[in-house]
Structures are given as structure tokens and as C-alpha cells.
Simulated assay, not measured.
Amino acid sequence: MDKRSKHLQQWIDIYSDTLLNSALFLLSDRQDAEDIVQNVFMSAFESYHSFQGRSNVKTWLMAILKNKVAEFYRKKYRHTGNIPLDHYFDSEGSWKHDDILQDWNEKDDNLLDNNDFNSVMAECMDKLPLKWLIPVKLYYLEEKKAASVCQETGLTTTNLWKILQRSRMQLRECLEFNWFNIS
């Protein structure tokens, strides 16, 4: 076994779980996450000669992972259909349901520490149209700047802000129905 193959096998043994967990967080689909991690290791094998050890192996592999995820989203985002808005807006573009803007109880200060809430939030995010989910994850979960999200998804800045605002409204409605009205 040559040096490159030996190192790659060690990296697979050491970093597979970490990369898979990160990919699952970013993609929310186990099959896609496993495919991305496999692609990460294939890319690492192919570009082994370019790794000069200036950074930690994990850092290098995570950078490859983030690039693969961005590439995945770019491809997937460009191949999704139109987003139906008729659930939220009438034919004149006004909100159909004004009650979506109701105030939430202030008793729930530390919701992100609540596993049940996080589970409901994940379900609500999964209900977002793919064209909305990708920018939401990139902007809010990966904390990328708007310019970076626009570059990765091919959106204009105006379109990004509209998508983020509509996503927040849909998430709010879902959380109100599935969390705040039952808790």
C-alpha cells in the first residue's frame, strides 16, 4: 500500500463520523450526506499531492466537505421547480392569514435548549420548499454572508431577502401550529 492510500485509509477511519455528522446537519438526508462524504474522500485522494500539511487534516477535509455541499446545493437548487406561494398570498399579493403575525409567549426563552422544540423546528424546516431551505441553511445555519449565499445559489440579493422573509413566515406559522399552540 502506497503512502497516499495508507493516509487516506487512516483519514477514513478517523474522520468519517465527523464528516458524516456535519454533512447530515447541512443536508438533512442521510443518503445525500453519505454520498458527499464519499466524494470528499475521493477528492482528498485525487488531490493528495496538493495537501502540504499547512493545516490540520480535519480542517482540510472539512473545507472539501463544505465545497462539496455548496456544489450539491448549486446543482440541486438550479434544478428545482417554481415555489407555490398561493398558500400565503392572495392574487393581489396580500397575506391570506393575518394571524400568522401573532405574538409568541415570552415564557419560552431558551427554546434551543429544548430537544422537543428542536425536533419540531427540524420538521418545520423540512417542510420548506427546497428553493427556500437551501438559502435558509446557508444563511442562518452556516452563517454565510448574503453575498456568499447569492453566489452559491445564483440568487439576486433581492430574491434572497424575499426567500428568507417568506421562509421565516412559513417557519413561524409551522411553529405556532406545532409548538406554541400545543405547549
Score class of each variant (00 low, 15 high):
T156C: 00
S16N: 10
S167E: 15
K131A: 06
L171W: 06
C124G: 12
E176W: 05
D98K: 14
N114I: 01
R30K: 12
Q102L: 12
S16H: 11
Y88T: 02
F45W: 09
F177S: 11
Q151M: 15
S28P: 02
I14G: 04
H49W: 03
G53K: 01
N118C: 15
L130W: 10
R74I: 03
G81K: 12
K75D: 08
A33T: 01
L111W: 07
V136Y: 15
N181D: 08
M121K: 08
F180Y: 09
L26Q: 05
K162C: 12
A70H: 02
L85V: 09
P129Y: 10
M62I: 12
V40E: 02
N21D: 15
E152H: 13
R166D: 02
S28H: 09
H49L: 00
G154C: 07
I64V: 11
I64P: 00
E142C: 11
L111F: 02
S50Y: 13
E123L: 08
S55F: 07
N82I: 09
L128A: 02
D98E: 15
D99F: 06
L20Q: 05
H79G: 08
D99N: 04
E71C: 10
D126S: 08
D35Q: 00
L155D: 06
K66S: 00
I182F: 07
H97N: 10
N82L: 14
S183T: 10
K107C: 14
E92H: 11
V37N: 00
A146V: 04
L171F: 08
N181E: 03
E92D: 15
V40R: 01
K3H: 15
A23W: 09
D126C: 15
K162G: 06
W161R: 05
E71V: 01
K137H: 13
E173D: 01
T59C: 04
Q9I: 02
N110M: 06
S16E: 09
H97D: 15
D29Y: 04
T158N: 13
L19W: 01
D116F: 12
A70K: 03
N178G: 06
N39D: 15
L130S: 04
N67R: 15
K96W: 05
G81S: 12
M62N: 07
E143H: 06
R4F: 07
L141M: 02
D90A: 10
D29F: 05
L61R: 03
V136R: 14
I12W: 01
S119D: 11
D32G: 07
P84C: 04
F45V: 05
W161G: 01
H97E: 05
R166Q: 11
L138C: 02
Q52Y: 08
F51Y: 13
V149E: 00
I12N: 04
K58T: 10
L171H: 04
Y73A: 09
E173C: 08
N21T: 07
S47V: 02
W60C: 02
D90L: 14
V40M: 01
S5P: 00
N82D: 11
N181H: 06
Y88Q: 10
K3N: 08
V69I: 01
K162A: 13
P84Q: 11
N110Q: 04
T153V: 14
C124Q: 05
D17G: 11
N21P: 00
L19R: 01
S5D: 14
F41K: 04
S43A: 00
L8C: 03
L8I: 06
S183Y: 08
S16P: 05
L101F: 15
H49A: 09
N178A: 11
L141I: 13
